[in-house]
Amino acid sequence: MRVLNKKVLFGLYNDEEILKSAILEINGENAEIMEVYTPFPVHGLDPYLGFNESRLHIAGFLYGMMGTTLAFGFMSWVFTANWPIIFGGKPYFSVPSFIPITFEFTVLMAAVGMVITFYLICGLGPGVENPYLDPRITDDKFCIAFDVTNSSREEVAALSGLLQRTSAEEVHTKNI
């Protein structure tokens, strides 16, 4: 398992609406949230956490364009220069017959490219074991985590009180 050498204070919530109002309240107190973990994607959470629009889809567009160019260019080269074959009496350079493969390859490149990019960004991949705070976060608990590695005892107590005030069911600390 990867070791991050971090001390984390986290609160567990039962419902995504409670989680959202808790985040708003914590934002109001100017406490810096390290990360929020949810068992499923909670709609509208990104702006609460101040995230900008993801740029993954721009990468996806570029991968897709790459796929289009590669597929169309390769077929054009093969069927006009490298190994011309007549299919169904059509000209060597028959654009309509290239389109389905170009389309499919565009989708394939965009999808696979985005998955690989996403895995690299998130540090995921085969054989990687990332530390977790609580296994129930993947089931039915919503978690707000603070990085308290360099915080004093008073600061941790204050954050802990903040979590409890915002209706956290449980508050724990963990070294990961």
Binding site: P41, V42, H43, G44, L45, D46, P47, Y48, G50, E53
Partner: peptide
């Protein structure tokens, strides 16, 4: 209704 990609000004 929320598509989940709103920016902060939407809140």
């Amino acid at each position: 209704h929320d598509t989940g990609v709103g920016v902060i000004k939407d809140i």
